[in-house]
Amino acid sequence: MTEPSGRPPQRDDFARSEETVRQQRERMAPSIARRLPPDAGELARRRMLLRWAKWVLPATALLLLSSIAVWPEVDRLINANKAALKEISKVKVESGNLIGATYRGLDEHNRPFMITADSAHQANPERMDLDNPVADILSQGGSWLLVRSEKGVYMQHAQILDLTGEVTLYRDDGLMMRSPVADVDVRTGIIASDSWVRAEGPFGVLDAKGYLVSQHEGIAQFRGPGRLILNDDRGSHPADGKAS
């Protein structure tokens, strides 16, 4: 064994020259500077950021919650716009005619009606000439009536539709009528004709010289002389109206 020399133990890693120590301190100086406490300007900026975050973050959360609440309505509007654009895409203009024309409006009781046609020509600001027009009218009770023909003239401001050529009327209670001409007042929901008519329905068959149907009043009147063949089926119900 070796005898202790009486000197304190020495470590090689502490045996550094002054130049080495100086270089190490220079390398550590930037990190020490970065850890210095912020000055007054930096503190002011941090306080402003915190105040801004206290308002912006709750507002952002409220905006997100509101968007979730109103999204169903936004989705409905988007779908409605898509449907409208789809209808508009079907409308084409050829030689001054509208192809696939659709006209929607409200009657005097704010009930909707719709008139469509294969083509429409604007004869003047009041008159529209229609090919294969179809008028769809909704009554107060929710029943519907549809009338169509080969040709038609629609007077926009008066809301009168004059139909000619194989006029056919359908009603959701099973009534169907055919006549060569008919006038439709879409504002009041009245369809009338002074020409011959054949009506068929659950009640039977009726031939007459004219008719008047009020969709909103729920009545059908026929002008004679006429011929009525009643249905023998006891389960059937006669149509409302009268023949004179």
Rank of each mutant, 00 (worst) to 15 (best):
residue 147 V to W: 03
residue 210 G to D: 09
residue 142 G to L: 03
residue 51 R to H: 06
residue 59 A to D: 04
residue 181 V to P: 00
residue 214 S to V: 02
residue 107 D to W: 06
residue 32 I to G: 00
residue 212 L to Y: 00
residue 130 L to M: 05
residue 5 S to C: 04
residue 132 N to R: 14
residue 131 D to H: 07
residue 48 M to K: 12
residue 42 E to F: 02
residue 163 L to M: 12
residue 221 Q to S: 12
residue 146 L to N: 08
residue 167 V to D: 01
residue 158 A to D: 15
residue 182 A to N: 03
residue 115 I to T: 04
residue 105 G to A: 03
residue 63 L to C: 14
residue 74 V to E: 10
residue 6 G to W: 08
residue 146 L to R: 15
residue 144 W to R: 14
residue 17 S to F: 04
residue 89 S to G: 09
residue 79 N to A: 15
residue 206 L to D: 05
residue 21 V to F: 03
residue 145 L to Y: 02
residue 109 H to C: 00
residue 78 I to E: 15
residue 226 G to P: 10
residue 197 V to F: 01
residue 119 S to M: 05
residue 53 A to V: 07
residue 70 V to Q: 02
residue 13 D to G: 01
residue 137 I to G: 01
residue 70 V to L: 10
residue 173 D to H: 02
residue 64 L to A: 15
residue 14 F to W: 10
residue 5 S to A: 09
residue 122 Q to H: 02
residue 26 E to T: 08
residue 143 S to G: 08
residue 106 L to Q: 11
residue 238 P to N: 06
residue 30 P to C: 06
residue 162 D to T: 04
residue 160 I to L: 14
residue 169 L to I: 14
residue 166 E to H: 10
residue 90 K to D: 06
residue 231 N to T: 06
residue 130 L to P: 01
residue 187 R to D: 09
residue 100 G to E: 07
residue 209 K to W: 02
residue 172 D to K: 05
residue 29 A to L: 13
residue 177 M to G: 06
residue 69 A to P: 00
residue 88 I to M: 13
residue 59 A to F: 12
residue 138 L to H: 12
residue 95 S to F: 07
residue 173 D to R: 00
residue 134 V to H: 02
residue 138 L to S: 10
residue 178 R to Q: 12
